[in-house]
Amino acid sequence: MGTDTVEAVVFVACALIVLGGAFGVIWFRNPVQSALSLVATLFGVAVLFLNMNAQFLAAVQVIVYTGAIVVLILFVIMLLGVDTADDIDAEPLVGQRVIALVIAAGVAGLVIAGVTIVGGDLVSGARAATAAITDDVPNIEQIGRVLFTDYVYALEITAVLLTIAVVAAVVMARKPTEVEPLPQESSSMEPPEPVEPEAEEVFD
């Protein structure tokens, strides 16, 4: 009984933090402030993970998300020097905000309506189809066990995914001016096309 109350209290508190943070992300004009709001949300989610007995995930959430991802984003914000305020008063696209609001409300509304009409335990799926959650074994071990059995294939694929991320970083970080000179036959070939002027105009 008591644990349930605690859980409920924690949930409500965290939900407020999460939603507040999320709201902040889209509300603040300064991307730095948005990033910091995002941190709040991520922390809130981490605590909710704890609330749901997902201790390991809570830790990873803090370490990876706030520790790596948000820091990376902040890094880039600093690097690009785009910590100036955005103009979010004017909306050049007609009806964009209204329709976006409809979409957001609609998706949320439908999903919420959906889960509430499932009835019973809100989920209709088979119980513990992969591996039952048990209090006998530490959370990490349970995750590890499934990670290396049922999801070992997925685990291996993430390796490929991360490799791509590394290669991507290398490729995108290359400066266009650093493009190596054309090979020997370059004398016979035309020089690389300059960027189209109209492209520049649009970007200005």
Binding site: A154, I157, V167, A168, M172
Partner: peptide
Amino acid sequence: VLFLGLETLSMAVYVLAAMNLRRV
């Protein structure tokens, strides 16, 4: 697995699309 495959596929293709650094 499908999702991870999809992401692997797409992530590489995003980069392939953006790769020509000379053309904006």
